[in-house]
Amino acid sequence: MKISTKGRYGLTIMMELAAKYGDGPLSLKSIAEKNNLSEHYLEQLIAPLRNAGYVKSIRGAYGGYVLSKSPGDITTGDVIRTLEGPISPVDFTEEDDPAKRNLWLRIRDNIANVLDSTTLSDMINYEQDDNNSGEGSYMFYI
Rank of each mutant, 00 (worst) to 15 (best):
Gly24Cys: 03
Gly64Gln: 02
Gly53Val: 02
Ile74Arg: 01
Tyr138Met: 11
Glu43Phe: 07
Ile58His: 01
Tyr141Thr: 13
Gly64Asn: 02
Met1Asn: 13
Ala99Lys: 13
Thr5Gly: 14
Leu67Glu: 04
Gly77Thr: 05
Thr82Ile: 00
Glu135Pro: 13
Arg8His: 06
Tyr21Val: 03
Lys6Trp: 09
Leu83His: 00
Met139Ile: 12
Ile31Phe: 04
Lys69Tyr: 01
Ile124Phe: 05
Leu42Val: 06
Phe140Tyr: 12
Ile3Gln: 11
Ala52Gly: 08
Asn132Met: 10
Ile80Ser: 04
Ile80Thr: 05
Glu94Gln: 12
Ile111Lys: 00
Asp78Cys: 02
Arg101Phe: 09
Arg106Glu: 14
Ile80Val: 12
Thr119Val: 06
Lys20His: 03
Leu11Pro: 06
Gly134Pro: 10
Asn113Ala: 14
Thr12Ala: 05
Pro48Gly: 02
Ser38Glu: 10
Ser88Arg: 07
Met14Ile: 02
Glu135Thr: 12
Ala47Met: 14
Leu11Arg: 09
Tyr54Asp: 01
Ala18Glu: 09
Asp78Gln: 04
Arg59Gln: 12
Leu26Pro: 15
Tyr138Gly: 13
Pro86Ala: 08
Gly60Leu: 00
Gly64Met: 05
Tyr9Ile: 10
Asp73Asn: 02
Leu37Tyr: 09
Gly60Ile: 04
Glu43Ala: 05
Thr118Phe: 07
Glu39Trp: 07
Ser68Asn: 11
Gly64Trp: 00
Ser117Ile: 13
Arg108Pro: 08
Ala52Asp: 09
Gly10Thr: 03
Lys100His: 08
Ile46Leu: 06
Pro25Gln: 08
Asn51Ala: 10
Thr12Lys: 01
Ala61Tyr: 03
Glu127Gly: 12
Gly85Glu: 08
Asp91Leu: 10
Ala18Phe: 08
Asn36Cys: 04
Ser30Leu: 10
Met123Gln: 15
Pro48Ile: 02
Val79Trp: 12
Thr82Phe: 02
Thr119Arg: 05
Leu11Phe: 07
Asn102Trp: 08
Gly60Tyr: 05
Glu135Arg: 09
Thr93Lys: 09
Trp104Asp: 05
Leu11Tyr: 06
Leu67Arg: 01
Lys100Met: 10
Val66Arg: 00
Arg59Gly: 10
Ser4Asn: 09
Ala61Phe: 08
Lys6Leu: 00
Asn51Tyr: 13
Ile46Ala: 04
Lys100Gln: 09
Tyr54Gly: 02
Asn132Glu: 13
